[in-house]
Each structure stands twice: as structure tokens, then as C-alpha cells.
Design a binder for these strands. Structure first.
Lengths: 191, 191
DNA sequence: CAAGTGATGGGACTTGGTCTCATCAACCGT
DNA sequence: ACGGTTGATGAGACCAAGTCCCATCACTTG
């Protein structure tokens, strides 16, 4: 791997985050990111499939963790129990270096429509993957839909809380999921 | 309005849908869409802010309907009751001509990542708007989050069911929401 | 030491998207 | 009837995202 300066991907991520932070996403050209990382546009697109993706790298790994987490939940667990398994499994990634930039990353994404669009797609991908895992366990389609959607909501809420207050992500996510479940079962019908 | 050939926007939508259908989204250039509609690239971008948006026009109107539907729900209604008001209010748009192309539109979107991305953003926008409306009614933040997320899920499921089986959209959506609610309140805790 | 491998550089090319200016049909007031 | 205004369009320059192809160069292997 490291025949030239190592960690080209990480350098690109850091350069991008810095530049987006300093001058905004729209005012930053891919060539500029590459230049700051000591690379070229060609190399940039070899590492990330487009300009946005540099802020979302590593999320493919999360899909695997979700699948494994759901499949690995005890057989006795219900749909939400399996979803909890997914959230807990994701914790290992969130505590790594790559996510040290979490708050800056969130701020940059929130400030730009294109990036929020990509974020929405990623979240939808999480929900899809959770739903597929639940169906695999024999959960009925409707319940799988509801549980995966609530699971992603708990993930979003738990992630935000974890960035603010810190602590063990697995624990925070577990609490967020229980919170969401409590609110869901308390919902009254329309009339 | 119609000093030249009228309905430039509609012509562009139809041309785009045809071309995407025939040769795929990626193999179609904006200039080509404009040409088939008897217009130019310049005019295309005056009607739609980018290549994707031609498949999502009119959804801004839905945001207003959501807001009005939630604000107009009876005071006695709970969070989900207000969400039901939003779904019912959206029905008027879905039954109009512009949505006659629903099935083709869904198929084109499903076949392309860029378009699914835009779709995910639109759905997130619906949820955001629902949540804001619920907060306005004094619904606690957590409940607003859960209810709006379930509302969008019911919208997606109801829309698909309506495209398949037809009938009155308001009624189909109401049933879908009740279905989702039933599944949500039946969820067991993790352990 | 020669051949091979893999990450990079470089540059041509297409297309999405912006911007500015010209055009031209309908409308409006005198 | 006439000149000015308005608003949608056309035309074309221009920039950046993204694709493609080929050259290069560091390091590895036989």
C-alpha cells in the first residue's frame, strides 16, 4: 500500500473537511482538495466516486455491521431487539479516528443541500439494509418497515446525543432506541 | 402566460419521462430533453433547477399541503391524528393530471441512484415539514420525530398501494397510517 | 537486472449548470 | 397606429464535475 506518501484517502478527507469548513462546499473545487492533499484530480476520483462522497467514506462498512448485528441478535429477540443489535454493532466504527471529525462533518453537511441529499440517501440505505435483515429473520414486511424506520431515527438521535454528551455509543444508542420505542407505542389512533 | 407555445414545463416533463424511459436517465442529456420539447437548454434550466428536478416538480406544493393539513387538524387530535390530516390534504394533488405518470415515474426513479438520492431528500423534507407542524401544535419533540417518520412511511406505503389498486387516495393513505400505527404500538422492547 | 504491478500524473473530452446579452411576441398607454 | 415595456425564450461563453486513456515512476519479484 504505502509506496508513496501513505494514507492518500485520509489526507483527502482532511483536506476536504478543512476547505469546506474555511470557504464552504460550493466554493471549493475538487482540484483544490487534491492539491492541498498533495495529489491531483485524477487521484481524487480514484478514491471517491464524486465530490460529495469524501464526507461519507466508510459508510459501506456500516452496512455490513448492520447486517451482521441483526443476524447475530438472539433468536428470541423481536424486530426492535434485532435493530438494537445493529446499533450496538455500529458502535465500533463510531469510536475510531475516522469519526473524530464528527461535529465538523455534521455542520458542513447541514449547511449544504447537495450534502444533505447524499446524507438522506445514506440513511435510506441504512433503513433498507435493516429491513432486509429483518425480513431474513422472518419478520413480517410491515413490522420490518416500521422497525427499520424507527431504528434509523434512533440512530440519528443517538448519534447527535453522543456527539454532544459523549460516553459509550452503544449505550447511548440503546437508550435512544428505547426512547423512540416508548414514544411509538404511546401513539394514539387518529380518531 | 401563454404567449408562445403554452405549457413549456409540462412539455419538458413529458419529454424527459419519455427519454428516460427509452434510453435511461444517464444516457439522456438535458439538451436532448429540451430539443424534444421544442426548447433549448437555457429554457430547461429556467423551469427546473437541475436535471433531476424535472421528475419532482410540484412537490413544493405538497409541503404547503402538509403544513395546512396539520395545522387544520382538530385540536383534540393527537400527533398521528394531525399527520393523518396532512396525508388527506395531499390527496388533492395526487389525483391531478400531473401524477398520471406515477408508475413510469416511480420506475425511472428506482432505476437510478442519482434519482433515488433526490427522492430520499424529498421524503426527508416531508418529514421535516410534518415535524415542524407538530411542534407548532405543541407536540413534544420526541413524539413529533416519531410521528413524522411514521407518517412518511405511511405516505410511501399508501402511495404504492394506491398506484397498484387505485381508489381514493385519502382513504388508502388513512388505512396505511392506521396499519403502520398498529405495527408500531405492537413493538416489544429489546430485552 | 529485466519484467511486472499498482498508485499516481496529465490532459483531452463530455455534460451539468451559470451567466449575460440579444430577440421577439404580446400588452399598454397615448 | 405607434413606441415603450414586459416576460419568456435563444444563443453562446464559461467553469467545474466526472470519465477515459495513456504515460510515468516506485517498488517488487523472478
Amino acid at each position: 500500500m504505502g509506496r508513496w506518501e501513505p494514507d492518500a484517502g485520509d489526507r483527502l478527507v482532511r483536506a476536504a473537511l478543512d476547505l469546506f469548513d474555511e470557504q464552504g462546499y460550493e466554493n471549493t473545487a475538487v482540484a483544490q482538495i487534491a492539491e492541498r492533499a498533495g495529489l491531483t484530480k485524477s487521484t481524487y476520483f480514484r478514491h471517491f466516486r464524486d465530490k460529495r462522497e469524501v464526507l461519507f467514506s466508510g459508510q459501506d462498512r456500516l452496512l455490513e455491521l448492520i447486517t451482521d448485528g441483526i443476524a447475530g441478535a438472539p433468536e428470541s429477540a423481536g424486530a426492535l431487539g434485532a435493530v438494537e443489535g445493529a446499533l450496538v454493532a455500529m458502535a465500533v466504527t463510531f469510536t475510531q479516528d475516522r469519526w473524530a471529525n464528527g461535529p465538523r462533518r455534521l455542520a458542513v453537511i447541514a449547511a449544504n443541500d447537495e450534502l444533505r441529499e447524499r446524507d438522506a440517501l445514506k440513511m435510506a440505505g441504512f433503513a433498507r439494509t435493516m429491513k432486509a435483515g429483518l425480513l431474513e429473520r422472518g419478520v413480517p414486511e410491515l413490522d420490518a418497515d416500521v422497525a427499520s424506520e424507527l431504528g434509523v431515527l434512533a440512530l440519528r438521535r443517538g448519534y447527535a446525543q453522543w456527539l454532544e454528551a459523549g460516553g459509550d455509543f452503544a449505550e447511548v444508542a440503546r437508550r435512544a432506541l428505547e426512547e423512540v420505542r416508548g414514544a411509538a407505542v404511546g401513539l394514539e389512533g387518529a380518531e
